[in-house]
Amino acid sequence: MTPFLRYAVFLSSGFCLVSLLILLIKTFAFGRRTNYAKHRGSAVRGVLYAFGRGMMPTEKESARRHLFTYSAGVTYHGGILAALVYLVLLLLEYELPAPLLSLFRLLLTLGFVAGFFLLLRRILLPAPRKLSCPDDFAANILVTAFVLLGAVHSQWESGLPLFFLTATAVFLYVPLGKIRHCVFFFYSRVLFGLFYGSRGVLPQEKKQEAA
């Protein structure tokens, strides 16, 4: 069973990468608009800000106001990354040293808790629920299950077929639903930096009074 699922993971991840590439090509096919206005600030500094300080709650009121949700989001994505790395290590049959395994256990467990919290938030709070479509719930459930099964395997070394099966499902779903933001997030963030940087809006050197 497991060797077959191992191949399924490889194939689905290949499908995922190729599909995301096609999505990107289709996106670029829409064409870009040239910016003819003379820059006021630095686009490069804007992009660096977008991926650095600009992600911090100190800079972003929405993150500050919803610090718990923001932290859950960061932890969840950390957990997902850990699950992916853990998956790769398993596929390569790499024996993890004990301290590293403990670190993975921690990240995966926290990631699962955070993902489950975000799912509950989406189900229970009226505003996020009304904003959501089935794709949002499906993506969250699928990825949270993937992280959970990674955590379970890291703890008890059991459930490997199920972990591989979920990984396959995740890879197949990534390009189809909202999880595609794993690529487009970076694209949008670059655009954010280019926009505010070239206009000289961000980064601001002067310290703001907090809201």
């Binding site: 999505l23 289709k26 996106t27 670029f28 096919a29 829409f30 064409g31 870009r32 608009r33 996020p128 904003l131 959501s132 479509c133 949002d136 909202k178 595609r180 933001h181 487009f184 997030f185 694209y187 949008s188 655009l191």
Partner: peptide, 13 residues
């Protein structure tokens, strides 16, 4: 344009 399409594919609601 591609920028708008990227934004559309990025919103996680």
């Amino acid at each position: 344009s591609s920028d708008e399409v990227a934004y559309i594919n990025s919103c996680v609601r």
